[in-house]
Amino acid sequence: MIATLRIVVVAAAFLIVTLSLLPVQLAALAAGHSLMRRLPRLWHRIMCRIIGLKVVVHGRLSAERPLLIVSNHISWKDIMVLGSVADVVFIAKFEVRQWPVFGWLARLQRSVFVDRARPREVGVQTSEVSERLLAGEAVVLFAEGTTSDGNRVMPFKSSLFGAASAALPRAPDNTVHIQPVAIAYTGIHGLPMGRYHRPVASWPGDVALVPHLLGVLREGALEVDVVFGETIAFDAAADRKKTARHVEAQIRSAVAAALRGTLPD
């Protein structure tokens, strides 16, 4: 009964907040006003509180531009988590565009949708991402290309760094800055999260979205650590595969430290 009531309350709050901010975001998008970049952060911050996501941030978003944020990926909740702590746009799989509610929200946040199944369109999509980078936007790339179980970081796909390479010729000093960001779900109801509760935090691709979403809403009270690493200068001399492995190693180390509870204060 209590769990059902919680779902109803969260759903009602979602509708109230979203419908209240929607006209403002639509107007900002139509006018090309900078508010269209800032308003999603407010929405994500409110929704994190409503759902019960307690976000603990270590480090800070780099002020350097162009900036590509590279992160591990555990769940749809990662969007809210990162969106609540910084003004960012996301690179998303093309399928996300077709999802009910989530796809609509992703379009409102001006996500860039990439369809790797259509090689002929990759160049156009890469160009759009590089234009966002050159416009000074912080662009988030989930470099695993899928979601993990939250206990590990899967190998990064170096091909996804192509947008950084495409932006180099027009970037200041011919350099794109890459910032590793680690996400780790570490607690539930004030207690350390063990493997038993990991399915609440993670969302593997073979699990239906709606049942997982309802499970998260029933539980609430999830704690998540976000660790901003030091930026890496990516230029024409940089090797894309080596850069991907280096960023992957940094994120894997930060996730492991977060899960062990050994992150520095």
Rank of each mutant, 00 (worst) to 15 (best):
S84Y: 03
Y185D: 08
L35E: 08
L108M: 12
V122T: 06
A182L: 08
P155L: 11
F14H: 03
F94E: 15
P204T: 02
E144K: 11
A167N: 02
L105H: 10
R37N: 10
V112W: 03
I178V: 15
G123R: 12
F90R: 12
G150A: 10
M80Q: 10
R260D: 09
S253R: 08
A28Q: 04
C48L: 08
R118D: 14
G83S: 05
H197I: 00
D235N: 15
I7Y: 00
L39F: 07
P264W: 09
A63N: 11
S111I: 03
V176Y: 00
V9F: 05
I251C: 02
S148K: 11
R60G: 14
L209D: 07
A117P: 00
V24Q: 09
S159T: 06
R38T: 11
V200W: 14
H33S: 12
R37Q: 06
V89P: 02
D87M: 12
K54I: 10
S62H: 11
Y196S: 15
V207S: 07
S202L: 07
V140K: 14
L209R: 06
M154G: 01
L168K: 00
R120S: 15
W104V: 03
F94W: 12
T186E: 02
G103W: 05
L259A: 09
M193I: 09
V224D: 14
V139T: 10
V226H: 12
R218H: 06
L141M: 15
F234P: 03
W104E: 03
T262H: 05
K241M: 05
S34W: 08
K241R: 13
D225R: 07
L29S: 08
T243W: 07
R6Y: 01
A12P: 01
H197A: 13
E230A: 15
I178T: 07
T231D: 06
R252G: 02
S62F: 13
D265Q: 13
R97F: 02
R218S: 11
A143T: 14
R240F: 02
A233K: 12
A3V: 03
L217V: 14
V9Q: 04
G194W: 15
E64D: 13
H177C: 08
R107A: 04
V200N: 07
S84I: 03
A163R: 00
A106R: 09
Q98P: 05
T243G: 06
S158E: 04
A249S: 13
R38H: 13
T175Q: 13
A237H: 10
D115A: 10
E131S: 00
Q179G: 10
V210G: 06
R120E: 12
R65D: 01
K54W: 01
L134M: 04
L26Q: 11
S148Q: 10
A92N: 06
W76P: 06
I232M: 12
E121H: 12
E219D: 05
L259M: 10
A182S: 13
F161V: 14
G123C: 09
K77T: 09
E223L: 06
G52R: 08
W104Y: 08
V207C: 09
I91Y: 07
L160G: 01
F156Q: 00
S127E: 03
K77D: 07
Q179Y: 06
V224C: 14
L222H: 05
